[in-house]
Design a protein around this nucleic acid. Structure first.
Length: 207
DNA sequence: ACAACGATCAACT
DNA sequence: GTTGATCGTTGTC
């Protein structure tokens, strides 16, 4: 998935981001995965066909976009952790501001102006530098769970990078431990299933 | 019905 | 390096 494009196309315009950072999550044996409790209402789509969106809410605030990757019956998914904005940057900024307003339950006023100023100071390459920010930039929330990300007709979808000969990343790929999964225990927390394009500025900060 | 906690981010010190 | 915001999901009773 690294190097492929995340595309959202709707009335607001066309948003495109290049995937630069991902994390892989397995089935019940993977104690860091949402599938560790088996199939539940929340994670049901993880056990379905590949290419489907699985969006969950973390920390009561941020929507994170995953792509189901396994065969039916073997739950697994890949979290899109960061994206390099390539098009529709203005729409992304507007979407981030909308999320911020909703979070703070503010419509207009000083708080909104402050939020807009903070956002204006953020360079394009850092707009979607983290899984919660990817969701915010692309206006994706849990209701998008189930969308077919491989269907050209979907408003949210994956596309091969047309500038890459084989549609994949040419840059070297770095692997390391997944972020924020200490609860899974040393064995699973240390598995190097976080992948990113080496040295890319849109990759989220390591912890 | 209840309590605990998390695949995060921004604003602090 | 630390902390607060915020709520759905899950396991337990």
């Amino acid at each position: 998935m690294l190097g492929t494009l995340l595309v959202r196309e709707d009335e607001a315009g066309r948003r495109v981001g290049r995937i630069v950072e991902t994390e892989a999550y397995g089935g019940p044996e993977d104690l860091a995965s949402h599938a560790r409790f088996g199939s539940t209402v929340r994670n049901a789509v993880m056990g379905g066909p590949a290419g489907i969106a699985y969006v969950y809410l973390v920390y009561g605030m941020y929507d994170c976009l995953n792509v189901v990757t396994g065969v039916p019956g073997s739950p697994s998914a890949v979290l899109i952790r960061a994206v390099e904005p390539l098009a529709g940057v203005d729409v992304m900024r507007a979407a981030r501001l909308a999320v911020e307003r909703r979070r703070r339950r503010v419509r207009e006023g000083a708080a909104t102006v402050a939020a807009r100023d903070r956002l204006a100071a953020i360079p394009d390459r850092h707009l979607a530098r983290g899984p919660g920010l990817v969701g915010a930039c692309f206006g994706v929330d849990r209701t998008w769970t189930g969308v077919d990300l491989c269907a050209p007709s979907s408003a949210l979808r994956l596309e091969p990078d047309p500038t890459a000969a084989d549609g994949r990343a040419a840059t070297p790929i770095v692997a390391g431990p997944r972020v924020g999964v200490g609860y899974a225990g040393e064995a699973w927390a240390s598995v190097p299933w976080r992948f990113s394009l080496a040295g890319h500025p849109s990759v989220s900060r390591a912890r």
